[in-house]
């Protein structure tokens, strides 16, 4: 067969057929309030996960459950658990025996204790208190006269395609994206990224990929990865009293890059 004819046949018959032989269905479990920013962020992440899934043959859903319901769920039905409550409950859930190899996401607590616990299954998306303190110290060393606060996200953030994420969040939720909403979005988005790339939904495989191979685009700069403490490496936005973004930490010239912020390694 001539090359051209072959090419023609391929165009006509093979390319138009996209068949998802085995669509992957993923159920994520969420514990926390369903009326706040964390939940709105989770919903935003979910809609984006399903938009991608539509092209790759994956369907995602998020089920809101209680801690008791989680405790009663068979391990085989749990892929990942998203938690938007306080530090005490997050730690309790992460320490549940059957979740030892299941990714448990902290979406809402800055408690340093959750990082110091160094649980192999707990993934902390928000900035820790220590990260914020370190970012503020970097700023104050150079600008002792201006007071700022440290945030993971800001509705005026534009760089690294942050504005596109801000736009679509506001469009869908009639409210502005903040730290909590970003955390909810990021967790679902990195989970769907993991499923898309590994084609696996086994919890232990997911956890392994998230901790070792993830190269996540959080729309705030360099790829985000997890420390051994389970903390997501990320830049910190510094906001002044007029609600303007004045800098991003790590500040230029500070040694250690992203790891100049917060606790990096676990005590051996």
């Amino acid at each position: 067969m001539s090359k051209l004819k072959k090419l023609g046949l391929i165009v006509l018959f093979i390319w138009p057929q996209i068949i998802f032989a085995n669509p992957i269905n993923v159920t994520l479990h969420y514990i926390g309030p369903t009326d706040g920013q964390v939940w709105a962020g989770v919903q935003q992440g979910l809609s984006e996960a399903n938009l991608q899934g539509q092209f790759l043959g994956q369907n995602y859903q998020v089920k809101n459950i209680t801690e008791e319901e989680l405790a009663a769920l068979p391990q085989s039905e749990i892929t990942a658990v998203l938690v938007g409550t306080d530090a005490k409950h997050i730690l309790e859930i992460a320490k549940m025996k059957k979740l030892a190899y299941v990714p448990v996401f902290n979406l809402s607590s800055d408690a340093d204790g959750l990082r110091q616990a160094c649980l192999s299954n707990l993934l902390n998306i928000p900035l820790s208190k220590q990260m914020k303190t370190d970012a503020l110290a970097q700023w104050q060393a150079k600008n002792p006269d201006t007071l700022v606060t440290a945030h993971a996200w800001h509705h005026d953030f534009v760089k690294f395609a942050a504005s596109q994420l801000n736009n679509r969040f506001t469009k869908n939720h009639k409210t502005q994206m903040d730290d909590d909403a970003w955390a909810g979005w990021a967790a679902v988005k990195m989970l769907s990224d993991t499923v898309a790339r590994t084609q696996k939904t086994d919890a232990a495989d997911m956890l392994n990929y998230l901790k070792n191979d993830l190269s996540f685009d959080g729309q705030k700069g360099d790829t985000a990865t997890f420390r051994e403490t389970g903390q997501l490496r990320q830049i910190v936005l510094l906001i002044d009293k007029d609600d303007n973004i004045v800098a991003e930490a790590p500040l230029r010239g500070v040694k250690g890059g992203l790891d100049s912020l917060g606790m990096v390694t676990c005590k051996k």
Partner: peptide, 15 residues
């Protein structure tokens, strides 16, 4: 933001 290269068949205008 979905990390894909979409291939469109221009004869059908379909992905």
């Amino acid at each position: 933001s979905t990390n894909m290269v979409h291939v469109i068949d221009t004869a059908k205008h379909k992905v």
